[in-house]
Simulated assay, not measured.
Amino acid sequence: MKSVKLAFYARLALILHAVALTLLFMYLGKTILIPLFFALLISFLLYPLALVLETRFRFPRPLASVTALLSFVLFIGSLVFIISRQVVHLSKDLPQLQTRITASLADVKDWLGDHYHLDDAQQTEYINKSVNGLMGGVANSIGTTFVGVLQTVVLFVFFLIFIYFILDHRRLLMNFVISLVNRDHRAKVQEVVFSVRTLINSYILGLLSEMVILFVLILIALEIFGIKYAVLIAVMAAVLNIIPYLGIYTAMAFSMLITYAGGSGSQAVTIAIVMIVAHFIDANIILPRIVGGRVKINPLVTIVAVLTGHLVWGVPGMFLFIPLTAIIRIISEKVEELEPWAILIGTEEKRM
């Protein structure tokens, strides 16, 4: 069967339609696709453990899959336990935070009166309107908190179920993917799947190593300066840092607020300095050496992927669209017709 050669503008129109329909499908199906894609990434990470249990310890595949899954749940549970203990201690300082905010508002009120000649009545009216609007938003959010928590729990359960079945039925899924193409291309498909699995494993392990190193560095610095809730701040910074360019500054803002609640303004400034220095070390030393060029995506495409992920899947998309873009790059490298996209997504090769 002869292939039809379309004009460039026709191919471009079809590509744009395909991209738009794909993003629309991903947006409408995010309730299922987000936990499913997370489960796929974690399954790639747990696959070596499940394989060792099957081959070396002679575990049946279902038991090996369950054991690998339980090890992941134990890791997540330990992390949640550490964070929850810190949050409980933080909640005791919330009244102190309210007092500090009230005092700061009073200082701002005096400053506005001195510099802009706004009387107390005008400032009080504006503050009351702002507070009433804020309280209304809080009341509405409280009404949906229970539903949100319940939905998160249900999605997490499905996430664990997805991981188990992907591990347990991995050969069936692999056979399905291979059967989608002609026999002449099946070797290439197997090569792509192996490359994707290797990429995801190295990328996630690299991120975990980066998180541990960044956690230790920030924790040591905060302990030296005597910052309260150093463990909580270090964990939050290490976790949010997986969101490129935006995560560390979000962590810095929350950390400064937490520090201001239980410390002083100078300690909050110290937090900002520690975060900026840690981000500099991470971006120039830790990330290139540990994560390095594993995903091989240029910075421009990385930013576009992060913003597109946020638009389509919200905060989870800011993380998930990076390995998804890397997978697209790998597929584009193996398919001749898609090689221009691999060039666009990838990085420039350094010439010696």
Rank of each mutant, 00 (worst) to 15 (best):
F321K: 12
L112A: 07
H115S: 13
F81K: 01
S266W: 10
I273S: 01
A18C: 08
I142C: 08
Q151R: 09
F194H: 11
V138R: 04
L53Q: 05
I286W: 04
L28M: 11
N298S: 05
I204E: 01
L257E: 10
F225G: 09
S195P: 04
A68P: 04
E348P: 00
F159C: 07
G247C: 05
N175T: 10
L240S: 01
T144V: 11
G143S: 09
I258K: 02
F156N: 03
V193L: 15
L167Y: 03
F225W: 09
P48D: 06
L63N: 03
I343C: 00
A342R: 04
F319R: 02
V274S: 03
A326M: 07
I290L: 08
I42W: 11
I161L: 13
R61P: 06
L205R: 15
E339P: 05
G265D: 13
Y126S: 13
A237W: 01
G262H: 05
I343W: 03
A237D: 04
P62E: 10
A7F: 02
L287A: 09
A10T: 15
N175P: 08
H117L: 12
V193I: 15
I224G: 02
L74P: 02
R171M: 07
T325M: 11
M135S: 11
A106T: 14
K296I: 00
R329S: 12
L112V: 11
A106F: 14
F158R: 14
K334M: 04
A7H: 10
V131G: 05
Q122I: 15
A39C: 03
L40C: 07
L40R: 03
V304D: 12
T124V: 03
L307Y: 07
Q96P: 02
I343V: 11
F225D: 01
I76L: 14
K296D: 14
Y203L: 11
A187R: 12
E125W: 05
L134K: 04
A342N: 09
L150Q: 13
D110Q: 13
R197C: 08
L311A: 11
T308M: 09
L41V: 14
L118G: 06
G263D: 08
H185S: 12
T31L: 05
V4K: 03
T302E: 13
N175L: 09
L16V: 15
F165A: 03
G29Y: 03
L41T: 11
S202F: 11
H185C: 04
G262F: 00
G143N: 15
G293D: 15
F158H: 05
G247L: 01
I161V: 13
E339Y: 08
L51V: 06
H169S: 15
V335C: 04
K334R: 14
S3C: 01
L33E: 13
T67G: 01
L118A: 15
V196C: 09
I286S: 05
Y229V: 00
F254G: 00
L257D: 02
M174W: 06
L172N: 07
A68Q: 00
S43N: 10
V216P: 00
M26I: 01
Q123K: 10
A283N: 12
F321L: 14
V153T: 06
D120C: 10
K109W: 08
F162S: 13
G346K: 14
V73A: 13
